[in-house]
Design a protein around this nucleic acid. Structure first.
Lengths: 185, 185
DNA sequence: AAATTATATATCACTGTGATATATTTCAAA
DNA sequence: TTTGAAATATATCACAGTGATATATAATTT
């Protein structure tokens, strides 16, 4: 019927690593999985409440003075089972919507020089991303003694995905620019 | 505030090529841009209505016997201007959510053999995609005399994106499988 | 002292998704 | 031949996801 709720699994994954509030979860996401997954409060809070009802997590309220009291969530055995089960299920095919490709597809009346300029910009952004991924990989390898062996391989694999993706985009831009230049003649 | 409506531009792009009903538009999308853009009726019909109100398209009702009467939409000068304007604007950065990478990130307790098996499956799917993209490219080149020169370059570029993307995934799978095998020892 | 950043939760309006409902024609297989 | 599947055509629902905004206060920086 509707799209399947994947935020649930992102939150279960975080809570399987640490207990924390919605705010803590958001911070964790932003600092670790942000390159391929982003969460926002508008979803975190309602999904946490729903998961509590489903007994996938438990809530305990921490009183603080001044600040709003903190709702600390922890994963339950049932939640862990749900996560493990999801991890083994095949990934649902992602149709995705690429605004970039949509624009290119409809751009026949855009002047060639403007298009070439745009592809050069895309190439530059991809080159910057490549530098960022290399940095993350270095950071991971620098802390390799503190990270679980298995996690290290998996986390480096996700970074590697980004590297291959950026490299592919760069090559694609170069090839497209070349064929656009051939039109101009 | 909310996410920006991109369906609008997809529909304007289609209607810039041909006039037609919601049904026609859906068919066009499924047969041309499906690899990077998918539209569904749940969105096409309300967005068409809204665009009519904004005078980006006009509707004329075609009576048919038996079947529901067909609402044929055509793009207006205002709609064409809106499309042209959007085409020149930079692409909004896509954060995207990759269920695949999310799963890998949380998979430290999944047995290594199971993970390797999963990566082999992903590799196979990417190899199949590569074949499909090659086929589309051949089809395009076979009809190159009927296609506008500029469109041919742009459409082949979008197919090429898919090819580079698949190739990158294949390489990534091979590398990850290799590093997973090294853990097993 | 003032301004900014960090902590913390909640809600709104909107976009996007995929299933389902409804109804008829046309064509092919049993 | 009739049964049924596929194509034509529109509409609607429940839910998922987004990003901005509202509301408060503490700690830190300027």
């Amino acid at each position: 019927m509707a799209k399947k709720n994947k935020t649930k699994y992102a939150l279960l994954g975080v809570l399987n690593t640490m207990s924390g509030s919605g705010y803590d979860i958001k911070k964790f996401c932003d600092s670790s999985i942000r390159y391929f997954w982003n969460e926002n409060y508008g979803h975190i809070y309602p999904v946490l409440q729903k998961m509590e009802e489903e007994e996938l997590v438990t809530k305990h309220v921490e009183q603080t003075d001044g600040r709003p009291s903190k709702n600390v969530y922890s994963i339950t055995a049932k939640g862990r089972a749900e996560l493990d089960n999801w991890l083994l299920m095949p990934v649902e095919p992602e149709h995705g919507r690429s605004e970039l490709l949509l624009k290119i597809f409809w751009s026949k009346n855009v002047p060639v020089e403007v298009l070439i300029e745009k592809f050069m910009q895309i190439k530059e952004v991809s080159e910057e991303m490549l530098v960022q991924y290399a940095q993350i990989e270095n950071d991971l390898k620098a802390h390799k003694d503190e990270i679980d062996k298995m996690n290290l391989v998996l986390w480096i694999s996700t970074v590697n995905y980004g590297k291959h993706d950026s490299e592919a985009k760069i090559k694609w831009c170069e090839e497209t620019i070349k064929s656009l230049e051939e039109i101009e003649d």
